[in-house]
């Protein structure tokens, strides 16, 4: 039969069970889809499907609850770490994590983010840094690079007018409450594997009561950047990763 090739015994890859078939609203080339998959895989592999509660942000990932079949609570813009604190303090045995973008985490929610991390709540943060406000149409983010053009810095980010891109992950690494702080990306297979290992470590450390953690995923926003998916990946490697250097900034987990 012609369809033999897709017979179950020939499958070499399956999407995680926690990901449903709802068509994603994310643009082609967007990093969110890949990171969603990694989160789903990690939760599944940890056997935490019944105990995972995600707190979604305001921004493109506001619809995360549509795609990942775990429990979700949606936070106001920037407040995900506070909401997650409320849940986790009531239910310490659950895997409670936040999923936040750069505007949510590093602008309007800076206080909530740094204080949750500093309290050492057993909550990991997945931080999508694409240097832009994607959902609202490509405005300047706290992490927008110097010279990068956005709809609210149309001539390029000028530090005299707009200040400097905020390396909040470096700040998080300085806090006593964090046990694991890492910066990763998902533009190629090798990077995706490393990013997944970082997410796994962050989630595990939360369940082991080691404190807070932050995994930044340097991401693309091809629509906001006005580049094709391929060009966006190239731009990410050339410019984003030059400024936002990858690696573990802090690791006291002992894993």
């Amino acid at each position: 039969m012609q369809n033999d090739v897709i017979a179950p015994e020939n499958l070499v890859y399956a999407k995680p069970k926690l990901m449903n078939d709802t068509p994603m609203h994310y643009c082609a080339g967007c990093s969110h889809g890949v990171v969603h998959k990694l989160v789903a895989e990690v939760i599944e592999e940890m056997g935490m499907a019944d105990k995972a509660i995600g707190v979604s942000p305001v921004g493109c990932a506001v619809f995360a609850y549509r795609y990942l079949d775990i429990d979700w609570q949606e936070a106001a813009h920037g407040r995900a770490p506070a909401v997650a604190t409320g849940i986790k303090r009531c239910w310490p045995d659950r895997l409670v994590f936040t999923y936040q973008g750069d505007g949510d985490l590093a602008a309007i929610g800076t206080a909530e983010t740094l204080h949750m991390l500093n309290r050492g709540e057993n909550i990991p943060i997945i931080f999508i840094n694409n240097a832009i406000y994607g959902m609202t149409g490509g405005q300047m983010a706290p992490t927008t690079l110097i010279g990068q053009k956005t709809t609210t810095c149309p001539y390029g980010r000028d530090p005299k007018l707009n200040g400097y891109p905020l390396k909040i992950t470096e700040m998080a690494a300085m806090l006593n409450g964090t046990c694991f702080v890492s910066r990763q990306s998902v533009e190629n297979v090798a990077s995706i594997r490393k990013a997944k290992r970082a997410i796994r470590k962050a989630f595990q450390s939360a369940m082991d009561g080691k404190g807070s953690s932050l995994v930044e995923i340097v991401s693309t926003c091809s629509s906001g950047w006005k580049l094709s998916p391929v060009k966006a990946n190239e731009w990410l490697e050339e410019h984003m990763l030059e400024f936002y250097q990858k690696g573990d900034l802090k690791d006291t987990t002992g894993y």
Binding site: V55, Q73, A75, A76, R79, P81, A82, V83, A84, T85, G86, I87, K88, R89, C90, W91, A111, E112, H115, R119
Partner: peptide, 26 residues
């Protein structure tokens, strides 16, 4: 029960939002 001194009033009410979602009297 749990007590959290929040970093702001905003954070405090949003913590209540999270806790209330668990069915806890918050």
């Amino acid at each position: 029960g749990a007590f959290v001194q929040a970093e702001s009033e905003l954070a405090a009410i949003n913590m209540v939002y999270g806790a209330a979602a668990t069915g806890t009297r918050a």
